[in-house]
């Protein structure tokens, strides 16, 4: 009798995540270039609309926009894909008894690898705009770590319930569209009226994007208190999603609409 341990599935999540990443790259003619082209084109659109038409340019507007876009994209893409990861693997789930946690974790690995690729674009733009290296940048990995926690909390919880309520995916998609405008991607939240600021701070992406900008281009140490709160709430979300997936484990093969 073979004993399978966590190590086996951890290894599988990393291997398959890496494999999906490469499969994604070789699927289209332009391959990996899309991960750079997509945020770049988005940035150009936002630059023209807000920078040229509305004259809302702030200093270093291009890196400002790009930081917002790149980190928003990582959140949006990863959470949406994790949400459908269990649902999309029904055929496999019906054949082998697997810990279902495997599927959102594979997605997390794939999306994070893709994200690192788009980071190259950000680094290039920062060099072009002569943003000097600064000690505040050393804090950036911590901010990114908090963002991964947020992604995991939302992604796991969605992954747990989407197989039973497939509409959840559409609802979250709409929610994401609204959140995009409320996350301070193409404007600085600090320039808004105080009332609005208080409200927007409830959106973790506002805090995170501001913290990324603080470390990467504004040479200041981010405000840790809201980040700590976000980390705590996300950990609770991770625990909740994780527990639900484990609880529902034997139900997925059965309840996914036939």
């Amino acid at each position: 009798m073979r004993k399978l341990n966590r190590g086996h599935y951890l290894q599988l999540a990393l291997l398959r995540g890496w494999a999906d990443f490469r499969a994604e790259a070789s699927r289209t003619w332009l391959g990996v270039l899309w991960w750079i082209a997509d945020p770049l084109l988005n940035m150009v659109v936002l630059y023209i609309v807000f920078g040229v038409f509305f004259q809302r340019r702030t200093p270093n507007f291009v890196p400002f926009l790009l930081i917002g876009l790149v980190f928003w994209r990582y959140f949006n893409v990863t959470v949406m894909n994790m949400g459908v990861s269990i649902l999309n693997n029904v055929s496999m789930i019906r054949q082998v008894a697997l810990p279902k946690l495997l599927f959102p974790m594979i997605t997390l690995v794939t999306c994070t690898l893709e994200f690192f690729f788009t980071l190259l674009l950000l680094v290039a733009v920062m060099i072009i705009y002569k943003i000097p290296p600064h000690s505040a940048m050393l804090w950036w990995p911590v901010v990114f770590g908090v963002q991964v926690l947020v992604v995991l909390g939302c992604g796991l919880t969605l992954a747990a319930f989407t197989p039973f309520v497939p509409d959840l995916n559409k609802m979250v998609n709409q929610l994401m569209r609204i959140l995009f405008y409320m996350s301070g991607i193409f404007y600085d939240v600090r320039h808004l009226p105080e009332k609005a600021q208080e409200l927007l701070v409830l959106n973790p992406m506002v805090v995170l994007i501001d913290a990324h900008r603080a470390c990467l281009m504004e040479q200041r140490v981010p405000d840790w208190q809201p980040l700590a709160w976000i980390a705590v709430v996300s950990l609770a979300g991770i625990l909740f999603g994780w527990t639900c997936i484990r609880r529902f484990n034997p139900l997925y093969a059965k309840r996914i609409a036939r």
Binding site: L4, H8, L15, R16, A19, M92
Partner: peptide, 12 residues
Amino acid sequence: IILSGMFQGIPK
């Protein structure tokens, strides 16, 4: 072979 085998519970 590696990936599909691992999904079927065969160690790498």
